[in-house]
Design a protein around this nucleic acid. Structure first.
Lengths: 352, 352
DNA sequence: AATCGATTGGAGAGCGCTTTCCGAAGTGTT
DNA sequence: AACACTTCGGAAAGCGCTCTCCAATCGATT
């Protein structure tokens, strides 16, 4: 049995800058300069150092470097879920949802070329939130991309108060001077309304998401307003929570209340899918009897049958822009607070 | 609610352990002991220190701590894609795929309660691979969960050679003494075969994935073997690449070659979906004319219509087990190399 | 009362790196 | 040839933390 446990084998010390310097016959300072390409160093020494790097197999220790430079080359992806406790089943669903993956993909498309890595952080309790802020202020990460789920999340405010570079995906529930990217959800919903009306639907209903999520309430507002413009002062709305199951339940209650419904706008694709299946079971043909429009243009929309007409949400682009915004702020913390709003478009498929 | 306001956000020095010690009137060492709960400290001093922590708003600097403890409380999620260059569009698709999200969800279900965070790393070029190994050896992360995509990935071997704690999701393409979790893909495929035969299908074909991915070739092998047991010595196979489009193409070529086909097993759900849509367009009814079975039990399987019969792949459980395995190895590097193989089950829905 | 062992707190040596601060060269000007 | 300027390399001071020593204190044992 070896003496040390839970440690790498003894004597396996990795080469340090010190070693490189010794091999190259220069001081640690010079080696550091060469490796970081700072100031002109005599070409002769320069080569000696690089040779030493090759010979020793030296790789800089990021941790040590970060400790002094206060730059980590890491961005935190913070998922803020005020209610979550550790084994919240919701979180599993959240990650499996295309939303999460699309955001990660968008972020990475910018972060990866920049050599920045992403660290996933989930915060639920107030304690975790304070801890997160502390870590960020210490430079545990250079900045944070925040997916703020709960309605009254104190996190955005905490971040700005702490002076941590951060960008929100989706506008803050309450006004906070923080960078964010968002989608013109109301415009998107209006697109859906206009389309349903243009397709000849007369009895149009909506399946909404949770009322306290801004993206969700904006879709309701936008839809209502557009419908009003078309002379529908009142639109029946059934509430869901963005899951497929809730979409089914909502559609059932809608059918109950208004059997003649011939157009449905669901606040996301998953609920639209649920609605489609309920409609099918009820013997209604989509799109001949009932036109269905979703929101997000997730991969599920294409997989559906009939393929779902939906409002395209350019989430990857938004996340990418968010990453760019954040990187810019990390470089210049005095940058003016800004937000970028994306315009959604309608993707017409077979369900309407 | 304690507001750590009043401290100006930028530029001001954060309280260090030194500050806490001074305020508490003890030495830095004692403060450290109290905060890390090590050894018995006089209750009186203990309280003084905690008060000082509260008064100063102290949060330990993880970086500094990690530098000396050689523990970061971070696990790297490594996506290894030998071909990828920075703007590879494939990556976007990968993240949007439920596979990625399910893995993340499974990992987090274990990592989060353990207070461990996840750092996303994508490696494509040999250079990035060496860099990653270097970072890991330096303790940039305590261990790595590896999603190894390419067929002849040198990464698993490099990891074991470097002595870095690591666990693979899916068995290594070439035998390497490394921990991994995997699914009994062959058994799963056999389940599909047995089911199709039991349902009365006589002309059964398969849509396979890329031949050089172990998970994919195992499904082919398992399917072939099971079919042979049922007296089908030869099974027509069309090749796809796990995308919906490739599933459509494969189904078309299958219909061409064998118009009387009445049972199809696709190596994943996405391709099964593609097959379903081609069958529908060809006027074949699913499941009356043709029975379709997929693989994975992704959310898409449920969303399909008819809902897809599929082999359930307990990816979240597997990822969670992988995380547990990794955490155990981080604690004890001398642990015996082990692998956990999960048994798939068949989920029967309407497509068969 | 004297001694021994067990607790407990403090001093200080790093972890590996960057970066000022200086002194020693090298370059050009008068 | 003497001067001011510019380059360039090295010494050393940290970044914030942990943890090994060691000294001091205390109670208990003989």
């Amino acid at each position: 049995m070896t003496a040390t446990r839970g440690r790498s084998p003894v004597g396996e010390r990795l080469p340090t800058l010190e070693d490189v310097a010794r091999v190259a016959g220069v001081s640690r300072a010079t080696a550091s300069r060469v490796i970081n390409g700072i100031r002109n160093v005599d070409p002769q020494l320069n080569e000696q150092v690089w040779n030493a790097v090759g010979a020793t197999g030296y790789v800089p220790n990021r941790l040590a470097r970060s400790l002094v430079t206060r730059r980590t080359g890491t961005i935190a992806l913070v998922v803020s879920d005020s209610e979550a406790h550790d084994d919240d089943p919701f979180m599993g669903r959240f990650f499996a949802d295309p939303y999460f993956g699309r955001v990660v993909g968008g972020l990475m498309s910018v972060l990866r070329p920049a050599g920045v890595q992403l660290a996933l952080q989930i915060v639920g309790t107030p304690d975790q939130r304070t801890r997160l802020i502390g870590d960020l202020r210490h430079g545990q990460a250079d900045g944070a991309v925040v997916l703020s789920l709960p309605a009254h999340d104190p996190l955005p405010r905490m971040l700005t108060d702490a002076g941590v570079p951060a960008v929100l995906i989706g506008r803050p529930p309450e006004p906070v001077p923080i960078d964010y990217v968002d989608l013109a959800n109301d415009t998107g919903a209006a697109l859906a309304a206009d389309h349903l009306v243009a397709r000849g639907a007369r009895q149009i209903a909506m399946i909404s998401g949770p009322a306290d999520v801004p993206a969700s309430s904006d879709r309701v507002t936008g839809f209502r307003r557009a419908m009003a413009r078309h002379g529908h002062g009142w639109v029946p709305i059934a509430h869901g929570n963005f899951t497929r199951e809730s979409g089914e339940a909502a559609m059932r209650s809608l059918l109950d209340a208004q059997p003649a419904v011939d157009g449905v706008f669901a606040a996301n694709d998953l609920m639209a899918l649920g609605a489609q299946s309920v409609l099918r079971d009820a013997g209604r043909h989509v799109p001949d009897d009932v036109r269905v429009v979703g929101f997000d243009d997730s991969s599920a929309a294409l997989a559906a049958s009939p393929a779902l007409t939906t409002v395209r949400h350019p989430l990857e682009d938004m996340a990418a822009e968010g990453a760019r915004l954040l990187l810019a702020r990390v470089d210049d913390r005095t940058m003016r607070v800004s937000s970028v709003i994306y315009e959604p478009t309608l993707v017409i498929r077979s369900s309407s």
